[in-house]
Design a protein around this nucleic acid. Sequence first.
DNA 1: TACTTGATGATAACGATTATCGAAAGAAGG
DNA 2: CCTTCTTTCGATAATCGTTATCATCAAGTA
Lengths: 142, 142
Amino acid sequence: MQQLADTLKNKQLKVTPQRLAIYNILYNSKEHPTAEIIYQSLQDTHPTMSLATVYKTIDTLKKSNLIVELKTNGDSYRYDADISEHHHGICGSCGEVFDIFTNRLDTLILEVQKDTDFHIDSHHIYFKGTCPMCLPNNSIQH
Amino acid sequence: MQQLADTLKNKQLKVTPQRLAIYNILYNSKEHPTAEIIYQSLQDTHPTMSLATVYKTIDTLKKSNLIVELKTNGDSYRYDADISEHHHGICGSCGEVFDIFTNRLDTLILEVQKDTDFHIDSHHIYFKGTCPMCLPNNSIQH
DNA sequence: TACTTGATGATAACGATTATCGAAAGAAGG
DNA sequence: CCTTCTTTCGATAATCGTTATCATCAAGTA
């Protein structure tokens, strides 16, 4: 928690209880929660937390590159405080979002640059399919 | 136009003027338009076209895999009737969405499968950066 | 203590998409 | 051509995630 506070400070951000709580949830979760889920998770410990604060804090963290916004299948954005190079798999069965770590794409992205006039700064890669938990149940693939 | 009508028929879809008009716009456009833009484009030739019809037709075409939905930067989805294997670049300067054709990723996706328990059916790859038109103006990259 | 600035909380506003439902248009069979 | 049946269309209301507004609060400073 102190480590997270330091990270915020290093980004010139005021360390408020709300920011720390939201960043902490994102940092210690593999669920890639939505703003609404973060809000719900904080009801116990921070009952006065406003949903607007969640959105504003997310925006702040996003602009400081402490979290990444994921455009997945659902109606809402999801967020990820793991900013290391990795990709995401979206399970068509349960809807969960999973981290996919691979180094096979890293150098190749540079290669793709050779095929286009577009100047590439970053990339967002989503895989759709079935997660390991749902695979046994869903033998039928769409 | 007749070709598009046949494509709709082959997908067991009724060929209505509205569907043909919307599919035609998507098919003959490289702009990856939003529903609203499609609606605006049709005001001249189909003044009675309803925005709801645009959305419903998009949904129909989507379910028949005749178009692909793109989650880009803006507030709205964009759509692409080019269903061949290609990717998209989103220009951070002008906001346009560009096609990026490359075959460098094709086999690699299969390789990625080896690194994860997630069963991959499809992938969506977005590149963010600066388009050729904006590059000269924007020497400063974010 | 007063002043300044930025963050928070409550809520209204916004905007893209979806749902609803009566009317219109096709398709199928006489 | 006429029914009948089904699907699609158009107009509009409803939904819902996100943003904007604004008064209040908290932290830092003189």
